[in-house]
């Protein structure tokens, strides 16, 4: 009897751990149990600089989105070489399970997940609820740096099909390609009442959205209390209500492609839909010459 319950307990733990690693997101509990797991590397990608330095998940390494994950000169994601160097430096091998997390509801952590996936590293997880939930639960933070032995990471493949460029978007708009567009910005931005969210500089010359795009703000698929993803079925329903059911490829966009990575993550990893992220987003499309836009509010830049 004693043995049986022990066996059950082991089975239960095994199942829990399995469940933790199977899905695309991991819980904070799972993360806490795997802090010392050598096959797992925690990577913080926060929007606000300085957060990591003043306390992070013990053992985590810091990726700076504005220098590490993007090209510092061109408007582009980090090159394959730079990405491989970054991962080698962080002691990550092609087999390491990478758990990404960050502030602001994992926005840039999801961006990181997208870059990882483009460069063929599928073995990634997003920490559900991100940094906020970890802090809310009063879990330990550390300021002690950890250095891992250098590895030789090699980019296995480049999955360009996960990234939409302006041509892809225009092909969808002109119905040359079948694709559904999701604008994940606020309704005010989508309808063209404002060009950028409050406190953010207006970087587009036109207001509105890409023709045919539906508006599903990124926050609709998370629990407002702790920022965790809603259950898979609910997420599926939310998009289905807007006509996005995975029957055709999806393109997500926002202002600069950051928050839309969060939605991309849900569609690609949680629902398994074929999804591209359009990182040019509205700051490219809203500035492009000669492209059709929809601007229900009729706001005109610098004038009425």
């Amino acid at each position: 009897m004693k043995n049986l319950s022990l066996l059950l307990a082991i089975l239960l733990i095994a199942v829990t751990v399995q469940a933790g690693t199977d899905g695309p997101v991991v819980s904070t509990e799972w993360a806490a149990e795997n802090l010392n797991n050598p096959d797992v590397r925690f990577v913080e990608v926060s929007v606000e600089p300085g957060k990591f330095e003043r306390g992070h998940i013990p053992g985590a390494v810091n990726f700076r989105w504005h220098t590490d994950l993007v090209d510092p000169v061109r408007r582009d994601i980090a090159s394959a070489d730079a990405f491989a160097e970054l991962l080698s430096r962080s002691g990550i091998t092609n087999e390491t399970t990478v758990v990404l997390y960050g502030d602001h509801n994992n926005w840039f952590a999801a961006w990181g997940a997208w870059v990882f996936t483009i460069y063929g590293h599928d073995n990634i997880k997003l920490l559900d609820g991100g940094r906020n939930k970890w802090e809310q639960e009063r879990r330990p933070l550390s300021t002690r740096p950890v250095s891992y032995s250098r590895t030789t990471y090699e980019v296995a493949a480049v999955h360009d099909h996960l990234r939409a460029d302006l041509q892809d978007v225009l092909a969808a708009v002109n119905r040359e390609q079948s694709a559904a567009l999701i604008d994940i910005r606020s309704p005010a931005e989508y309808e063209g009442r404002v060009i950028a969210p409050e406190g953010i500089q207006e970087l587009a010359i036109r207001a509105g959205h890409i023709p045919g795009a539906v508006n599903v703000p990124w926050g609709e698929i998370v629990n407002p209390a702790d920022g965790t993803f809603l259950p898979r079925e609910k997420i599926r329903q939310i998009y289905a209500d807007k006509g996005i059911d995975g029957s055709k490829p999806v393109i997500t966009y926002c202002r600069i492609g950051e928050r839309s990575s969060h939605t991309w993550f849900a569609l690609h990893y949680i629902l398994g839909y074929e999804t591209k992220n359009y990182d040019g987003s509205w700051t490219e499309y809203g500035n492009a010459v000669g492209v059709p836009i929809e601007n229900p509010a009729g706001t005109v830049w610098t004038g009425k």
Binding site: T67, R144, P145
Partner: peptide, 10 residues
Amino acid sequence: NWIADPSAGY
């Protein structure tokens, strides 16, 4: 503690 090598470039 934060930047092991100050010539890292940031």
